[in-house]
Simulated scan of single mutants.
Amino acid sequence: MEMALVSAGAVALLVVLLAAPARASNEEGDALYALRTRLLDPNGVLQSWDPTLVNPCTWFHVTCDHASRVVRLDLGNSNISGSIGPELGRLVNLQYLELYRNNLDGEIPKELGNLKNLISLDLYANKLTGTIPKSLSKLSSLRFMRLNNNKLAGSIPRELAKLSNLKVIDLSNNDICGTIPVDGPFSTFPLRSFENNSRLNGPELQGLVPYDFGC
């Protein structure tokens, strides 16, 4: 009887150990499926997103690395609508977030600041509102940030000047106000990156405390 109990316990432990990796590898799938539940998808581009699979690496528009970690989400120009939601902040290995030219609305989640490996953030040509989250200043690997052609308001967070790897920014065609930072990478960005924001008052003056006129 004692041997039977030991064997049963060993079997139970083995089942738990075998199940753990599969569950861990599905964390990113859970996050992506939570996104899917927020979206309207009239063209069926997300119909391959099956939450019963071990991980989402077989889903269309999702790219994984050799370790089955999601590194790219390509849903640009897909005619989807709805909100982005905070769950994308759980895709901590993501390098490319491509959601441009859709009908997405609502605010940019502050949780996107958790995507420390993100290289490209392309949310342009949607209907996004609210302000640019200060948390995006934590994206130390970011090289491309394109938020143009939305309905974003508020000032440009000065914290974004800490993004030393940022090569391209486009905030044009929004409702951004205040002044344009001049520190860090902002010293290299052309003014066309900020055009068609009627309440934006041009670059800050060197040596003066920034003041957000009109915000």
Rank of each mutant, 00 (worst) to 15 (best):
T58C: 04
T58I: 08
F60Y: 05
F60N: 15
V62G: 01
V62L: 04
V62N: 05
T63S: 15
H66S: 15
A67I: 01
A67M: 12
V70T: 09
D74T: 02
L75T: 02
L75K: 03
G76T: 10
N77Q: 15
S78D: 05
S78A: 14
S81L: 01
S81E: 11
E87Y: 03
L88G: 03
G89V: 05
R90S: 06
L91P: 04
N93G: 00
N93D: 14
Q95M: 12
Q95I: 04
L97V: 07
L97W: 07
L97Y: 08
E98L: 14
L99N: 00
Y100W: 11
Y100P: 03
Y100N: 11
Y100S: 09
R101D: 11
R101W: 10
N102A: 06
N103D: 12
L104R: 02
D105G: 01
E107R: 10
I108M: 06
P109T: 07
K110A: 12
L115V: 09
L115E: 08
K116T: 14
I119D: 13
S120E: 15
S120W: 13
S120M: 11
L121P: 09
L121C: 04
L123P: 12
A125P: 00
A125C: 03
A125R: 08
N126Q: 12
G130K: 02
G130M: 03
T131C: 09
P133F: 12
P133G: 08
S135R: 08
L136C: 02
L139H: 01
R143N: 10
F144W: 14
F144V: 15
R146G: 05
L147I: 11
L147A: 04
N148M: 03
N149C: 02
N150E: 07
K151M: 13
A153M: 14
G154Q: 11
G154I: 13
G154T: 13
